[in-house]
């Protein structure tokens, strides 16, 4: 009976050692950025709260190029200290809200190191695309 607490502690230590190593990303940037992002008010529908806790959307901004195509940039952040895999997909809509099909309208896999942020960018498939939607999905494999 005296051995039991030591056995539990031993098992816990082995389990901790077996956990994957946590690697986080350090960053540096200009304290007063020159670039001013045109931020977009966004509406978020969260059905996978676990993914939402791990990979969070920091902000959404957009711009228009000379070619008249809308460009969207979404910043995502891995809030955990370990590597996170996820999939994302952009959908585009015209003025009437009808979805615009594209040949690459597919979920694309991405990975983020611990505490790393990343910009997911997409340029509208045509000039008639006025709205967008970003879908985030946890790694299915």
């Amino acid at each position: 009976m005296r051995i039991l607490p030591f056995f539990i502690i031993g098992v816990a230590l082995v389990a901790l050692a077996a956990l994957p190593g946590c690697t986080t990303v350090n960053t540096v940037e200009r304290a007063q950025p020159i670039a001013q992002r045109q931020m977009v008010d966004d509406k978020r529908i969260v059905t996978d709260s676990s993914l939402n806790r791990r990979v969070q959307i920091v902000g959404v901004n957009q711009s228009n190029g000379a070619g008249g195509l809308l460009k969207v940039q979404v910043e995502v952040l891995n809030t955990t200290r370990s590597l996170q895999h996820f999939n994302y997909k952009f959908e585009w809509f015209d003025e009437s809200g009808t979805v615009i099909g594209t040949p690459t309208s597919a979920f694309l896999p991405r990975q983020l190191e611990g505490k790393e942020s990343m910009f997911l960018t997409a340029t509208a498939p045509t000039a008639i695309a006025k709205d967008f939607r970003l879908k985030l999905l946890q790694d299915l494999r």
Binding site: G65, G67, L69, P103, T104, L108, P109, A122, T123, A124
Partner: peptide, 25 residues
């Protein structure tokens, strides 16, 4: 299939952003 989709998406996005939308076409 995911690799083809990924590569094509990168190429298409770059073409739209850096070539068409940049007014170089």
């Amino acid at each position: 299939m995911q690799d083809w989709n990924d590569a094509a998406d990168t190429m298409i996005n770059s073409l739209r952003e850096n070539f068409i939308n940049a007014g170089k076409l």
